[in-house]
Design a protein around this nucleic acid. Sequence first.
RNA 1: GCCUCCAUAGCUCAGCUGGUUAGAGCGCCGGACUGUUAAUCCGUAGGUCCUAGGUUCAAGUCCUAGUGGGGGCGCCA
Length: 507
Amino acid sequence: MHQYIKEIGQHEGKQATLKGWVANIRESKTNIFVVLRDGTGFMQCVIGLDDVGEAQFEAAKRLSLESSLALTGNIIKDERQMGGYELQATSLEVYGYAKDYPIKVNENEHGVRHLADRRHLWLRSKRQWAIMRVRNEIKMGIHEFFQDRGFMQMDAPIFTGNACEGTTTLFATDFFGDEAFLSQSGQLYGEAMAMAQGLIYTFGPTFRAEKSDTPRHLAEFWMIEPEMAFYDNEMNMDLIEAFIKHVINRVLEKCKVELEALDRDTEALAKVNQEFPRVAYTDSVKILRGEMEVNGKNAIAVQEADLAAAKQGIEDNLKDIAERETAIKAGMKKGARKFNEAKIAALRKEIAIMEEQVRNIPKWIESARNFKDGEDFGGSDETVLTRVFDSPVMVYNWPTKIKAFYMKEVEGDPDHVKGVDLLAPEGYGEIVGGSERETDIEILLRKIKEHELPMEEFEWYLDLRRFGSVPHAGFGLGLERIVRWCCDLDHLRETIPFPRRYGRLLP
RNA sequence: GCCUCCAUAGCUCAGCUGGUUAGAGCGCCGGACUGUUAAUCCGUAGGUCCUAGGUUCAAGUCCUAGUGGGGGCGCCA
């Protein structure tokens, strides 16, 4: 029987055995300091020559990054250590030595390609460990939220015969001689189940064959889609807001160590604990164009300020780098020189990011200024819009022509439908998309034709309207997108263990 | 699909307007030293400067094409 780092506090002053891998190691003549990771956490273990004897000490000297071993020793409190405890080894057993581990302790010292090619190993890194733990906690939070409210989890099929929003972006497969598609949404099946169970949610994988090589797209991702009988869009929005608050607060409460490891600004996350602004699409267009202010903030002006700040930042960093370089040339001690060299490297990285901003922000401003009422928001438009808010925003009543066929028209305004998108703050964009569903079979028939969808494949769906049609609503949440926001990641590729995206199938 | 930036050591990068023998940090290996926290110090090894053409007395550096990658946009959650 061995113990786990997460619960090691219970063994303070006693002997314990830990089994894990070397996450970091420092050697000296008489002591070897191993930072052990066992999946539940990270902890420093000290192997002293006098404590373990010469033979075991020699074995320990051959340890390197990611070697696996069991360590037995005394658990002592040490405030200086992460987690607050340390193991002082009395014996050890090596399972497997690792040589030339290709990923450094600080994963930021690698390019994305190098890491992505080694995803199976990269998952061991501390940041990735933290992300996967947050992902797990979000999933638990999702189930908790819905189960506590009487929702039943249902499994929608993955092979589907019909496309709910057009076939251009589906992966086609052979299903015993018939063409089948990998599901792009479980919603239509969710609606059927809601008519049987009242309150349901699906939680499954979803596939999109879009050649979208962006930080916010995957070809395979996980979606949560609740569907509620007897809900209108107001109730839908209330549920979305309560849901997001629940999930984020659970992560804030249960993932303190992980968020710390990710260097996540938890105060910004905690801003979900205010009422989410609800903005009609037509108003959001005005805000985006800079024609309407929010809390004294103008969307265009915010972008212009960002642009000016980036330009100034580049100048400042260049000046800083030049000063440090002259100082280094003039001569300084090795320690000071290394410090300055590291600083220069960091400043250069900042410059590269700011240069991208200088290149991109003018395009974003252009796009926002010229945005036409009736169009869908692009990625940059979402960023520009959400920057004037510090909490998630709900945009509702969207133009009919850019939304799916099943969304219910606003009474007396057929040009708009009762859809709602939740946009995350800090530039993370759309997290949730939902709507009240159309209940009138005549309107549905018309829309399926207008969208040029194959009517015969929707016959079963139309039955839901033929036999006791009721008002109902639902939404879809992209799991990876909320993970990205929670962890403050610049790309979706880190939010899922083995990302499947355009150009990436291995490992 | 479009726009844009980039490709130099195992990794991350520097190399100004072309100019002799291409550099640093980290990692590896060897050594010293230390209750160390991305430890520190000394030393060794390690490069066909992505590929193919071109300009030039001279190309890592300039030009063209190709290949590969980053970022942005489009399409979308």
